[in-house]
Every structure is written in C-alpha cells, then in structure tokens.
Design a protein around this nucleic acid. Structure first.
Lengths: 189, 189, 189, 189
DNA sequence: TATGAATGAGACTTCATTCAT
DNA sequence: GATGAATGAAGTCTCATTCAT
C-alpha cells in the first residue's frame, strides 16, 4: 500500500527512538519476561504506538539488536583501518562485550551466528560475523593472533563473554582480568 | 545417603526423579519460559504431583540445579586427588561446561558465585566455588596454571562458557577448540 | 455388605471424634474455605481417615452440625420441663446463639428451617424447629411471650442472631444488651 | 461527580457498571465462592476487563459495597431531616436490611463497624455507623426510642438482620413481622 | 496517528477426592 | 484400617495483541 521505506514523520521517528531506548532499559531491568506495557510506560507512549512501529514483541527486540549491530558495524569499519591490527581485534572484541550489557538479545544472535548450523541466517548476525572475520584475518596476517584460530571459536568465545556480561553488570576488575586471560590464549605462543 | 525426615515411598521417589529429569529436558527445549504443564506431560505425571515435590516453579528449577551440583561435587572430590593437578583442573572445568548443556540454571548460580558482590550466597554455588578453588590452587602450586590467575576470573570464564554451552548444544569441534584456546590463556607463558 | 450401624472399633470411634473436633476448630479459624488437609493436620490423622468417616467435605460439615444439634436437643428437652416457661424460652434462645460461635454451619440450617419454603427438609433443622416451637408455645400459654408471635419469625430472628454471633466472637456486653432489647420485643406489652 | 484522575471513557464507564451489577447478581446467586469467570460471563465482558477495573477479586467485592454504601448514605441524609424521627430511624433500618439482599458484603462491614474493637476502621462502615447514630439520637431525643439503647447494639442487631436477609431472599411476611417484633423492643416501654 | 480499553489464551497454584502402599 | 501420594478440574491473575475512540 504505502512505500516501505517512506521516511517517517518527525514525531513518528522520535517515538520510534523513544520506544527502542525504553525497551532496552526495560529489558535490562526485567530480563526476558519484560512486558510490552512496561516498555510503553517507560517510553511514555501508548501500547498501540509500540505496535505501530513493531508488529510483534519479537520484532521490537529484534529492533534493539539491529540498532546495536549498526553501531557495532560502524565501530568495526573504523577499526578495520587501524594500523595495529591486533589491538583493533581486541578492541572490537571488548566493545562488543561492553555492548552486551545493554543488549540482552545480542548474544542470542551471536550464538546463532557462530554456533548454529545455519550460520548467518540473520542479517545482523552475519554482519557482525563478517566484521569480526575481517579483523581476525588482518591480525593473523600481521602475526598478532595465533594462526590456527578460526572464526567459529572466536565467535563462540565472544558469544560466551557477552552472555556473561549481559547477565549482570560485570565488575571492571574481574572483567578486565578475564578478558586478559582469554586474549593471552588468542596470541601466538 | 541423605534422609530429609523420612525416606520417600518408592513410587514417590521415582516420580520425583522423573519430574526432575523431565524438567531438565523441557527446560533445555523451551528455555526459561517452560511451563509446569509441559514438564508434567513430559514426566507423565499430573500437575499436582510436581507441586507435591516442589512447592513452586522456582523450587523445581532449583531442584535441578542442586542435583547437578551434587554430581559435580562428586566429580570434583575425585579429581582433587588426581596426580596431574593441571589436567584435573581442566577436566573439571570441561565437565562443568558439559553439564551446563543439561542445566540452564547452573550458570545463574555461577554468575552469582563468581561475579556478584555477595558471592557464595547460594549454598550450591559456594560448593562449586570451593571445588574450583581447590583444584586451581593445586594446579598453580604444581606450576600448571599461571600464578596470577585468580578464582574470580576463573569462575567468570566458567560461567561464560556454561552460558554459551547451555544456549544450544555446542558442536564438539568448535567447543573443543574454544576451550583449547581458553586453556592456553590459563597456562603460564 | 456390613451392617450399617455396627459399632465402630474403639480407635475408629476416637478418630471420628478427633476429626469432628478438629473440623470445628479449623472451620472457626478459616471460615468456609477451610481445606480438608487443614482439618487432617489439626486432627493429626491422614486425609484418607477423614474420608473413611465422612464421604465428602459436605458430609463432614454436616456431621459437625448434627453433633451440635444433638447437644441442643438435650438442652431443650431439659428446658421443656422447667417451671418458668418464659425463662426457658429465653435461655434456649441464648444457648443456641452461644453455640453458633462454635458452629459456622448451623445458621445455614436455621435459615433453611425457618425461612425456606421447604422448611424442615433437613432432619436436624426440623428438630430444632420443633424444640423452639414447644418452648414457644409453653411460654405463650403462660403469658410470658406476646401471643401474636409466630414460630416463623422467632426462627428467623434466631437465625439472624446466630449469623451475627458466628461471624466474630461477640463481645459479652453488646451481645447481652442486644438480646435484652430483642427479648423485650418478644414480651407482651 | 467524583473524578479520580481522569473521566473514564464512555464505554469504559459503562463496562465498569456492568461488571458491578453482574458481580452483585452472581454474588447473590453463588455466594462467597462466586468465580470471576462467572461474573465476566454475566457481565458479557472478557475476564481481563474485570481486572482492568478491579485489580483483585477482593477489590471487586469491595467495589460493590462502596457503591451500596453511597446509596445508603444518600438515603440517610434525606431521612435525617424527616419530621418523624422515630419513623426515620425505622425506615433507614429497614432500608439497610432490604439492601443487604443485594449486598452480601455489607454485613461484613457492619460487623466490623459495630462489634469489632477497632470499630470504624473501614471508611464505608464508619459512614454507616455515623448515619445510624445520627438517626438514633434524634429519635431518642424525641422519645421514640428507649433511652438506654446504645449504638453498639443497634448496629449489632442491624448486622444480624442483614446477614439473615442476604442469606436468602426473605419472604415479606416473616420479614415484616420479625422487624416489627424487633422494633417493639426498640421502643420505650 | 495515538491511545488505552478490551480480549482471552494460558500461566501458576490449590484442593477435593481416589487409591496404591 | 490408616496413610499420604497422585490426580486434574478449576481458580485467580497476566499479558500479547486488537481495535474502537
């Protein structure tokens, strides 16, 4: 009926953002059982408004993930040009983990992208897979990562760390030390 | 072995175990939203039977965790006497991760035990923490683990791997390689 | 199969009494929603034992009522021979109200006996109706009660006072004054 | 008249009233165990609609009582200005009893207001207590009621009659005669 | 377009009753 | 005869989703 990507009216776009932001907050607070009403209240909009922008509950949470993914994609694009390829890989890895605290759903996607047979089904997951793959290759090429490291396990480990991070705001001390240990495992001997 | 107040009748004990086993299966299949009715049907018992053994939904899931913890405690006791302390640590770590696939709840406990401020609140979590700590110390003493590795991050990494493992049956290849990478990070340089 | 009124074994009879007593207590404490399990626990017997003596929940509560009715019948028989017929009527009326505090179910019966069209359906209710009727007639004959007072409204008023009494242990002061007022209404002018 | 925070939408207000009316009917028919579903069906609305207007089962029944109390308060205000204070008292008493048939809950409140130590806890009960007290005083002043009659027993007797009335639609004959007897007790000798 | 009232499937839990032990 | 484990219907309440206002 109406063109798909017609630019939204200004107020509609603002509402969409408010809903996304509220959903993220609520999801972080209430976990997987967060209710649509709770999101509506946090966003200060009516229930119907959410459904105007996201047809189902699932679509809303996917929306969060996609937004995050776009952000991460931006970061990865920058890092892909950095000189120190090893540091770039580790920085991106850390950035994704940090993000996970705000995004309970991303790990699910990561799991699907990295472990599931039908890897790359989800577009967003595929993008992240590609981004990490690029950084990985560059770092290996430069000798900053062990040469036998494959993308599959790198993604799996990333997913694992994200899951842990999203469960509860990780204290900086243990988090940094845990990542340091892991990164040592990534390096050539 | 342990008698609460009265040994359960034979049929009652059998039902209790069937419920626990079914709950584990259903939880693995349906995730955190698994319904009590689904468990009852999988166990082939009435809804009321579940509630006889576990007064609330939460208690049932705690029951799974406790059962798993007891198994793990047995394993750790054996391994604590093994000669190769390094291998013992890695074997236990791997055993816990393997278990996690069948036990969605353990990671929650691990998270609480390893990351949360009030570590060791839960009895089961504390037991696991102790078990891993013992094996860790022995392995460090023998020079099989890097000396700066602390229990906190070992637990955090264990929790992370469990979370990843429980999310979806991990394929053996990536899983082994991921653990291999991680274990290399645990070793002295 | 077995004779209906075969005398119960001593322990069986004792159990029956314990169940009745416990049911009365629990009913007074929990109201109409009192559960069979609560009765069993208060009586210190198993659930099955209750069902051996009373086939349904309803039968149990009827059992309480019947027991009380028998007691009241005894009292009324004594009072029927008292010289002061007016005092006898008032005493019996008061005794029934006092009883009601311990017997949440009796008022229901009274209501049926006194107000319902099919008065006297229940055996116990009919007995009480008869007892009050006898005392009423004697007192009227002696001139202690107004001659236009009919059994129907006497029963209705009795039922009303019982309902109030059973709702909450009535404080002696107001209870006595309320009955005094009512009794003045019963007297000839 | 009274606006909570926002005037309800027309359809919402209509539904609220339909629910209240249906609840009254069902409560009268099924007694204290009336189910929410039965109310929903009688009102011709979905279950959720009830819960939108009354968050719990208890709140619904309280809603009935409050509605009735408001009606009674209106009546008492009118009667408080009547010339014949004695008749006003008796009329109000009778009106409350008549109402009780449609309001199973009022007696509970009355009992609390009149008999319980912490009389007047509930707002609605306190209002009724006040209303009856005013009428009582006026009637005593005019010599239409015995001077030793206190509010406490008047309330207790009112509660008793309401309990009886609500139990089962009282036939007019016995009801009127019972009240007549009681009212004679209220009069000076 | 935004709102939130309405809906009803389905969740957890209780409890009268049956029946194997 | 006694026990209490098992059953499952039924209850209260929540929540994703639809649609009248």
């Amino acid at each position: 009926m109406s063109e798909k990507s017609r630019p939204l009216r200004t107020d509609a776009r603002r509402n969409r953002e408010r809903v996304l932001a509220a959903a993220e907050t609520v999801l972080a607070r209430d976990g997987a059982t967060a209710s649509m009403r709770a999101v509506a209240e946090a966003a200060g909009v009516g229930l119907g408004t959410i459904y105007r922008h996201f047809p189902t509950r699932e679509a809303l949470f996917e929306g969060i993930m996609v937004a995050r993914m776009l952000e991460l994609a931006d970061q990865s694009a920058e890092l892909a040009e950095a000189e120190d390829a090893g540091a770039a890989f580790f920085d991106f890895f850390t950035a994704v983990v940090d993000n996970a605290g705000r995004m309970r759903a991303v790990a699910e996607v990561l799991t699907h992208a990295g472990i599931d047979v039908k890897a790359g089904t989800s577009e967003a997951g595929a993008a992240l897979r590609t981004a990490l793959g690029t950084l990985l290759e560059r770092a290996q090429h430069r000798g900053d990562l062990r040469p036998d490291l494959q993308l599959a396990e790198a993604l799996a480990l990333l997913a694992a760390m994200c899951l842990a991070a999203e469960r509860r705001p990780w204290e900086p001390g243990p988090r940094d030390r845990a990542l340091a240990v892991l990164f040592d495992g990534f390096r050539p001997r």
